[in-house]
Design a protein around this nucleic acid. Structure first.
Lengths: 339, 339
DNA sequence: CTGAAAGCGCTTACAG
DNA sequence: CTGAAAGCGCTTACAG
């Protein structure tokens, strides 16, 4: 069943059928009615390959997800899909290892699939700096701030990672914690771990605390990796009273490690996460964490991309608010200051 | 840059270029070399719309995921993507509400996107029975058994849900539990909850236990819903000593509910899940659960689909082994039999 | 082994 | 408001 068949059935030409299908204004009501009736009856759907070939545009928007087990990204992705769907856009999603070069992959993808736009879920600024100039379609980076890069085709939305990290440290400090361990991602690259750690540094300094390298233990963003890193951290820093994990999954792994070391949470060790994935509220004890507004991230990201697809405009870089969710995994040590 | 440009640059015709690009055997080595050199140099990629238009086939395989927050499916999906990628296949994935009619959606999808094959992640047999005859491409259903339906285009892979559920009940019985509550999905439809519950019934009967309707509390497959359902369950059945949740997410919600009721796990109440998502191992206490072999499910599913795409063959319905993972959320009450 | 040509199903100026 | 026609970029018999 093609547009030609519909034309024959309706007595009109293919041009008119096409115009009806595409909601062109210059069609008589009679033609529109008659043709639509047949389209309905036959359940006709135009061949999208032919359509796109003619329109010289790929329909798809590609979404590159960095990290395969990332609950936060899964959450954002779900919302992205739904907004995209509401706008009749198709999404192609690819999962990359959390240490892969997403920009290099994107360049490749643009060659092969020619998406009309890209959304990056997570990204390393270093990779963008090195390779983004080769990308020629509008893009949006989520959960990292690309404003400093100055690419005209790259917008970004993120919470203020520094401020959020600082809020965590301040909160721990207020609750009497002085020796705090940090569990996070790879620092060699310009990733979110960096800005979060910058916030940690600033807060430590502001509160008169020193921070030595061994208080930071790098790991991947998974429970398993968080668990192992936490074991290391506890070993190197037997005196810490709190752990700030740069993601909830890492925090959940750290909880397990703490228990294996015989620590009670939060009596012996306090733990704070980052992301507020749904498990954070159902862990035991409930995890105190930084809530990222995934709905805002997804919606603003998609809408910005769609606008930039419609007409070129200056990139927008915007900060999404965060919130420190106070739950049960932090103990106040106000009464036992030990500095 | 089109195939025509490559032809001009190389001095060959477009036909030869196309043949080189598609690895046809009937091309001289010289032509192949010269053309490939130019293709490499220019970074040329054929327009996939044009290609597919000619080949009269959509490239994509559609994956329909039933439930948006399903960690098990997320896990399987990731593996599906990777296997598909290894085989140079593109995947289009759509997330549906867990109570949506996936078959109706699939029929629609076939009209619009014409995928060459479909993979269902989760599915209600009732929906398949009602609407699958309208689907004309090879399909695979994962985590439910479609053998009874007899559709020539529908294969299925699943663990034996009845046997697994029976194993859980037997295990609980052996450990002294006599009054067991069940938390699961919607029973009105022919979903996995049904076969799992059938296994529960059988095991209860075999062990001489009675099972009254109020011991079953339906809910959606989420922590939040599991939490609320568990609260109900405890209220209606204050004497139960164990809860079998038909998914790990439900179980995690139930754990929260149990704690709120003042129960210790597993001392006061034992909890068993289903799926073995990664959080099951990192919850506190660690969750005893049924492990589904997601790798096998994904790989066998994709390979079967690929084979059926290559040449029609009889559908295959296969059982994937399960394993009861003994961890910490079940208490032996062998010493305090109370029947 | 290679080229010229038809045609996949659609859209869109161009006439009328 | 409508139809005839060109053409999007590719593949594949058909000749040679």
């Amino acid at each position: 069943m093609t547009i030609k068949d519909i034309a024959k059935l309706s007595g009109y030409g293919v041009g008119t059928v096409s115009r009806v299908l595409n909601n062109h204004p210059d069609v008589s009501d009679k033609a529109r009615e008659r043709i639509m009736a047949i389209v309905q009856a036959e359940g006709f759907q135009p061949n999208s390959n032919a359509r796109h070939l003619k329109m010289q545009a790929q329909s798809a928007i590609a979404v590159l997800v960095k990290g395969t087990q990332n609950m936060l990204f899964a959450d954002i992705l779900e919302r992205i899909q739904s907004v995209l769907c509401d706008n009749d856009e198709e999404a192609y999603v690819a999962y990359l290892d959390e240490d892969a070069d997403e920009v290099q992959y994107a360049v490749q993808l643009c060659l092969v699939r020619r998406p009309k736009g890209l959304i990056f879920l997570g990204g390393d600024l270093e990779n963008f700096r090195a390779g983004f100039h080769r990308i020629t379609v509008p893009c949006v980076l989520l959960t990292n701030d690309a404003s400093a890069l100055g690419f005209p085709l790259l917008s970004s939305f993120t919470v203020d990672d520094r401020a959020a990290a600082k809020a965590v440290i301040d909160f721990l400090f207020e609750n009497g914690h002085r020796r705090i361990g940090i569990l996070g991602g790879n620092l060699s690259a310009e990733q979110i771990s960096c800005s979060r750690l910058a916030g940690v540094h600033r807060a430590m300094q502001a509160n008169g605390l020193t921070f030595c390298p061994q208080q930071y233990q790098p790991c991947r963003f998974s429970m398993q990796s968080g668990y192992q890193a936490a074991l290391q951290l506890f070993q190197h820093n037997p005196d810490i009273t709190a752990v700030f994990a740069l993601s909830d999954t890492i925090a959940l792994g750290a909880m397990r490690a703490a228990r294996e070391m015989g620590y009670s949470i939060p009596q012996d060790i306090s733990i704070v996460g980052y992301d507020d994935i749904s498990f954070a509220e159902f862990s035991y004890p409930r995890l105190t964490t930084i809530r990222q507004d995934t709905a805002a991230l997804a919606e603003r990201g998609v809408h910005t991309l769609l606008e930039h697809l419609a007409h070129t405009a200056a990139p927008v870089h915007s900060i999404i608010p965060f919130r420190l969710c106070l739950r049960e995994s932090v103990q106040s040590r106000a009464d036992k200051h030990d500095i």
